[in-house]
Computed example of a mutant assay.
Amino acid sequence: MGFDVSVALTWILFLALFPMSFFWLRRAWRIGFKRDFSEVALKHGQSPAAPEKFATVELLINALAGGMLVYVIYLVVTGSAEYSTWSAVAGTTIWCKLFAGFGLSRHAHMKVGAKTVTRAS
């Protein structure tokens, strides 16, 4: 029996769901219950001027993504979903969370009314 790359990647994806869901749910917990806004909408490691303004959206993004990954873990462990189904749901959840977090951080750091400097050619 030889080494099968697809089986290895399947296990890597499944095992990666555990720390991702843990960190995302922990971040939601910190924002929602501990009122810790230090990780809200970070851009280059810097918080926006008013992170509490964006805390609810960041909380929802992290809670929904973390909860969805916990549900995917449940589906895999109970055998309720085929590989193509759970891997598609997990992959879509991961990408949507990353894009939503990126968009929120860029929106939170947007400078309203700032003049843009253009370079002369």
Score class of each variant (00 low, 15 high):
Gly2Arg: 01
Phe3Ser: 04
Phe3His: 09
Asp4Ala: 12
Val5Arg: 03
Ser6Gln: 11
Val7Gln: 11
Leu9Gln: 13
Thr10Ile: 05
Ile12Lys: 10
Leu13Trp: 04
Phe14Asp: 00
Phe14Met: 03
Leu15Cys: 13
Leu15Gly: 14
Ala16Arg: 06
Ala16Asn: 13
Met20Gln: 05
Phe23Cys: 09
Trp24Met: 15
Arg26Glu: 07
Arg26Ser: 12
Ala28His: 06
Ala28Arg: 05
Trp29Asn: 01
Arg30Asn: 13
Ile31His: 03
Gly32Trp: 05
Phe33Gly: 05
Phe33Leu: 13
Phe37Lys: 01
Phe37Asn: 02
Ser38Arg: 05
Glu39Ser: 12
Ala41Asp: 11
Ala41Leu: 10
Gly45Ile: 06
Gly45Pro: 08
Ser47Gly: 07
Pro48Met: 11
Pro48Asp: 11
Ala50Val: 11
Lys53Thr: 13
Thr56Phe: 14
Val57Met: 07
Glu58Leu: 02
Leu59Ala: 01
Leu59Tyr: 07
Leu60Trp: 12
Ala63Thr: 11
Ala63Glu: 06
Leu64Trp: 09
Gly66Leu: 03
Gly66Asp: 08
Gly67Gln: 07
Gly67Asp: 03
Met68Leu: 15
Leu69His: 00
Val70Asp: 00
Val72Asn: 01
Leu75Gln: 15
Val76Leu: 07
Val77Met: 15
Ala81Cys: 04
Ala81Leu: 06
Tyr83Asn: 01
Tyr83Lys: 03
Ser84Asp: 10
Ser84Val: 08
Trp86His: 02
Val89Cys: 11
Ala90Asp: 08
Gly91Gln: 02
Thr92Leu: 13
Thr93Ala: 15
Ile94Asp: 01
Ile94Glu: 00
Ile94Arg: 00
Trp95Phe: 11
Cys96Lys: 03
Cys96Ala: 15
Lys97Met: 14
Ala100Arg: 01
Ala100Met: 12
Ala100Cys: 12
Phe102Ala: 11
Phe102Ile: 09
Ser105Phe: 03
Arg106Trp: 12
Arg106Thr: 03
Arg106Phe: 09
Ala108Tyr: 01
Ala108Thr: 03
Val112Pro: 04
Gly113Arg: 09
Gly113Ala: 06
Gly113Cys: 06
Thr116Glu: 14
Val117Phe: 12
Val117Trp: 11
Thr118Cys: 02
Ala120Ser: 10
Ala120Tyr: 08
